[in-house]
Design a protein around this nucleic acid. Structure first.
Length: 447
DNA sequence: TCTGGGGTCCTAGGACCC
DNA sequence: TCTGGGGTCCTAGGACCC
């Protein structure tokens, strides 16, 4: 039906419960187990497979301590986040998708848009081919949705995932107006990409509850009440392309770099805060250099928990740097100076972090008025050495003394799986008689 | 007791300028 | 009853995403 129309068609392919699925790939013994993956610090459940969802009936980012007892009772398998592993699996997923379209936009770690315009095949069939190939090459389960705009492709993907009738592939371009409308009448407006919980309430208040109703709403009036983003969403729901596919190879330059984290346990001492801030400054600078950027401002914050309603304290301040830099020493110095100003004793701090802003490309930086730049060759060489050693021997091999050795504030990662793909010594061993470092079995194909 | 981290974009309002 | 008006830039806050 859509075979000889030249109308734009996008696909959205995404991995089902990405993190949980990644863990399962390396643990075939957990094939039929309920699985939950926790956020940094083991605080919240951020991913769970269908089995765990059915058993625990949890919501996104629910605090794990609320579920832990019940989870244990039901035999739920728990993992801390293992981002190195998920990133590696993500690359394989993306590489596989490139076989099916010349234009692929990597939207997130587990989602890609594909340009399907002019594909001369029945889309549902093609979707199943994509799905089967990804499964075969990476062991990851995915769903595929097709639509005439990104917003519709997202919605189609949602249906493919949630409504068994589609068997994992949903093509909205193949429906006539009546069929489409009856499908959308049964979808809540919050299922639309860009409509979050706040907007849902506001839209409900003006009588818009379903996607079908939102699609028929007057864009001009919606714009006045809810802004340009919602107006654009309505047009996209009607098959107009307002969001283009962005398949540029060069990732967009970051506008800010943030490093922050909750503490493993509450801290009150300035010494511990300083160590944590030094750690975040180091981390942020490393990422800054990786992107070839300089920062102009440093922002630091420390706070106790927003759940401590009566006593909530948040100290934060920004400082402009004399000239743009990516030097860990200089930025740490600035961050620690800020901490001195925002630290207040006798508070049980829960979280700290820094944000680098005013980012500019490293190349072509002008000297400041005095003809002085912070990035002299000595500093440059030091940073190159620092990054080189940490890359070669592992993160944190070389670090500032201000970061401390005995980190009482470090995060918890009690249930982390091994670094299967990034560290030779952590490769899976199927047969314990095989000497360390010689993996066998079905994981071998992933190497 | 325990409650993620890293981003983006838009808008409103104040400061400032002529 | 009046206190100019219009433009730009910056920032804080709100909303969204995964």
């Amino acid at each position: 039906m859509s075979t000889h129309s030249n109308k734009t068609v996008y696909a959205l392919a995404d991995v089902n419960s990405m993190y949980a699925s990644c863990e399962q790939v390396f643990r075939p013994d957990l094939k039929n187990s309920p699985i939950v993956v926790l956020s940094n610090n083991d605080g919240c459940a951020i991913a769970q497979n269908q089995l765990a969802k059915d058993l625990l009936g949890m919501h996104m980012a629910q605090p794990w301590h609320e579920l832990e007892a019940e989870g244990k009772r039901l035999g739920v398998k728990v993992f801390s986040s293992n981002y190195e592993l998920y990133a590696e699996m993500s690359n394989r997923f993306i590489d596989t998708l490139r076989e099916f379209s010349p234009r692929v936009e990597v939207y997130s770690i587990d989602e890609c848009f594909l340009d399907m315009t002019g594909i001369n095949k029945p889309l549902t069939e093609y979707g199943h081919l994509i799905r089967d190939t990804v499964k075969q090459w990476t062991s990851l389960p995915i769903c595929v949705g097709f639509g005439h705009s990104k917003t519709l492709a997202k919605l189609a993907n949602h249906c493919a995932k949630k409504q068994p009738i589609w068997k994992g592939v949903c093509d909205l371009t193949n429906l006539n107006e009546t069929e489409l409308n009856s499908l959308l009448e049964n979808l809540q407006v919050s299922k639309v990409w860009g409509i979050g919980s706040r907007l849902e309430v506001k839209l409900n208040n003006v009588g818009i509850h379903t996607v079908a109703r939102l699609r028929k709403a007057n864009p001009k009036r919606i714009r006045d009440a809810f802004g340009v983003l919602v107006e654009r969403t309505i047009k996209e729901l009607n098959g107009e392309v307002w969001l283009d596919l962005d398949d540029s190879e060069i990732p967009l330059e970051a506008k800010q770099v943030l490093s922050s984290r909750s503490f493993g346990e509450r801290v009150t001492e300035l010494k511990d805060i300083n160590e944590a801030i030094s750690f975040h400054a180091t981390n942020a600078c490393q990422r800054l250099r990786k992107q070839g950027l300089y920062a102009n401002t440093v922002y630091a914050f420390i706070q106790n928990s927003p759940f401590d309603k009566a006593t909530f304290y948040s100290g934060n301040e920004t400082i402009g740097l004399p000239s743009p830099t990516d030097d860990t020493l200089r930025i740490t110095q600035a961050a620690l100076w800020l901490v001195k100003r925002i630290y207040s004793p006798n508070i049980y701090y829960q979280k700290a972090g820094i944000m680098l802003g005013g980012l500019v490309p490293k190349e072509g930086q002008q000297l400041d008025l005095l003809g002085y730049t912070d990035r002299d060759s000595k500093s440059e060489n030091l940073m190159i050495a620092l990054d080189g050693i940490n890359k070669k021997y592992g993160r944190g091999t070389l670090k500032l003394a201000s970061e401390g050795i005995d980190k009482t504030w470090r995060m918890r990662r009690s249930f982390k799986s091994p670094n299967y793909m990034g560290d030779f010594l952590e490769l899976p061993l199927i047969n314990s008689n095989i000497p360390l470092g010689f993996p066998l079995g079905e994981n071998l194909k992933l190497l």
